[in-house]
Simulated scan of single mutants.
Amino acid sequence: MARFHPLRVAAVDRLTDDSVTLTFDVPPALRADYRYTPGQHLAVRRFADGDGAEIRRTYSICSPAPGPEQPGGPEQLRVGVRLVEGGAFSTYAFKEVAVGDELEVMTPAGRFTLEPAPGRYAAVVGGSGITPVLSIVTTLLEREPEATFCLIRSDRTAASTMFLEEVADLKDRWPDRFQLVTVLSREEQQAGLGSGRLDAERLAALLPALVPVPEISGWFLCGPYGLVQGAEGTLRDLGVDRHRIHQEIFHVDDAPSVSVSTAPAPEHSTVTATLDGRSGTWPVQDGESLLETVLRNRADAPYACKGGVCGTCRAFKVSGEVRMDRNFALEPEETEAGYVLACQSRPATATVELDFDR
């Protein structure tokens, strides 16, 4: 089970005018709990001043995963935070968090991951979508000498580009195994590709010119909804099997809300949930998601974004049917196997049973 623990802030480093990294110290007793696979994320929470409302946000780990030299787990964790206009947590992290503060941090989660293995890999990222991919590519190149990586990244301007120095360092360390292509949407570059959005039409011409598309072992797409969807569609048109495409969406404001099921909602319904070995059954109130019903009775139910993006609230549907409003976290094989996002699920039958422990 994912759990929160207080972690001390060891460093706050400014990346750009609107982004920072937070580094957390992990005490020896918790290092095994915070072992992570490259690409995973952390949920961080605070309680707002005034009404004390709980605020949770999810941020990807950008540091390489601990190797054999750290068998117990990481001594530190580093995440990237981009300032969002009006963002309750990002504003706090950007302007108020200081070294020595303690923040409540959930143990790592997420399946946008890559265990180092030989092969050719590639990523298409936009903006802060570089954050988990930085962990993925650094870990891969450090641990697997028979692997190569092509990174295609899109940013507004050079000044707004997160982890500029870290990515340049990768190119210096592994010039024969790491390929970098940068596209700026609002600024001309002295060399390389011209400015403009990295849309599907542009990707269709660019990708085959950069890499042998059919030979890529895994594609990693991360960033805003439009970029990720456009890149996925382009890859499918180029004949890439969906099992080789991995995606994580950071911004879904422009994404449609489409229910996975057309089953009518029952007049009355109950949800039975198993969580950390204990089960309970509760009535679902009008308009509630199944996660909200469980949270009214079990405050320890796992969640982070409540937007169908992070996958922290994934649960196995033991029985009954649900309607999922959005799903940007589960792979098709996961939904086919019976997994749902509790934050996006509403009952489509009188009874639904979920298991958060599977």
Rank of each mutant, 00 (worst) to 15 (best):
Q70L: 12
P264L: 13
Y303M: 04
E232Q: 14
E187D: 11
E215R: 14
E334A: 10
G80H: 00
T312Y: 09
G110V: 07
G194H: 05
G110I: 08
A329R: 05
V99W: 01
V260M: 11
G127A: 11
P302E: 06
S319P: 01
G192V: 04
S90P: 01
E321P: 00
G226S: 12
R153D: 12
D101T: 07
S345R: 05
S257E: 14
K317C: 15
V318L: 08
N297Y: 11
R153E: 15
K171I: 02
P74E: 10
A265G: 04
G192F: 08
T37L: 13
M1A: 15
G100H: 09
A117K: 12
G218Y: 09
V79T: 00
E54R: 13
R346D: 04
P208L: 04
V79H: 05
R314I: 15
L235S: 06
C343T: 00
I152W: 06
A263M: 10
P214S: 03
G194E: 11
E215N: 12
V137C: 12
L235I: 10
L235P: 02
E333M: 11
V213R: 14
D325I: 01
P347I: 12
T157E: 08
E69L: 09
P256K: 06
F47A: 08
L295G: 07
A2F: 15
P116W: 12
G239E: 07
Y36V: 03
I152Q: 00
S279V: 01
R202D: 05
P27A: 13
T107P: 02
G194L: 07
V20C: 01
A301R: 04
D300V: 00
